[in-house]
């Protein structure tokens, strides 16, 4: 399998789509748009996984794809939308660093991913190499997003996008136990649920989702005393 063959090109295209959507996520300033992009990424991811399942002839991957579609593209975005609507965050705009620097950093991360993966996978097939590079890029971009977003929802979205990269990577590996993938999906849901629970409580307690409010308390708020010898 190599360049110019349909299975490879298709896989390449879909994985590239996921990566592209990561950039779209990074580019978004509005929370609602962010959620939309996340849903789109989930959908493309599901397609990529399903394609892998077909190419590699692993039926289990269809299950994974389905789970990804349901969780990432439908359930979680809906839940997040609900949250946003409830808090009235529809028009909220937030990034910690500017879009421009964010994009430049993103490109740098992709370069790093390729730089690391390509020499590391001399013996592996092209599909594995490309897939791994894409997956890692998506992960790194997800992490970048977690760092650049100030809102709790932004961070959750970053984490979910990061998991998308994971699923993309897992799809490339034949023979991984299904339970892992299922657990991944289940845990993502659980994680999202717990996160949602927290955001609710955060809302209750602080009337806001800006995490900047949080970090002043460390249980040691009194001024630290000078220790005698």
């Amino acid at each position: 399998m190599g360049f110019g063959q349909l299975p490879f090109d298709m896989a390449h295209l879909l994985a590239g789509g996921v990566l592209l959507l990561s950039f779209v996520l990074l580019y978004q300033r509005r929370v609602t748009a962010l959620i939309g992009a996340l849903a789109a990424q989930g959908a493309v991811l599901a397609m990529a996984v399903a394609w892998q399942g077909w190419v590699l002839d692993v039926p289990a991957l269809y299950v994974t794809a389905l789970a990804a579609l349901l969780a990432k593209a439908v359930a979680i975005p809906l839940g997040l939308r609900l949250l946003v609507r409830r808090f009235g965050l529809r028009r909220a705009v937030e990034t910690a660093i500017g879009i421009g620097p964010g994009m430049i950093m993103g490109v740098g991360l992709v370069a790093l991913a390729i730089l690391v993966v390509l020499p590391a996978t001399q013996g592996a097939g092209a599909l594995v190499r490309e897939g791994l590079a894409f997956a890692m890029s998506v992960m790194l971009l997800g992490m970048l997003m977690m760092i650049t977003r100030r809102h709790a929802i932004g961070q959750v979205v970053g984490l979910l996008s990061l998991e998308n990269g994971l699923v993309l990577a897992a799809a490339g590996a034949r023979g991984l136990p299904l339970v892992v993938e299922l657990a991944t999906a289940a845990l993502v849901v659980a994680l999202a649920a717990v996160a949602g629970f927290f955001t609710l409580r955060l809302r209750d307690d602080f009337a806001g989702l800006d995490l900047g409010l949080l970090h002043h308390h460390r249980g040691e708020s009194a001024p630290p005393g000078e220790g005698p010898p």
Binding site: Q155, L159, L214
Partner: peptide
């Protein structure tokens, strides 16, 4: 304080666990 701690735990732990999964997958690959 408890909520902040839990949130921090969740986000950082979630990130860590995701990275660990990626590492696991790469190991399998």
């Amino acid at each position: 304080a408890a909520i902040e701690a839990a949130w921090k735990f969740l986000i950082l732990g979630g990130l860590g666990i995701a990275l660990a999964l990626f590492g696991t997958i790469v190991l399998g690959l």
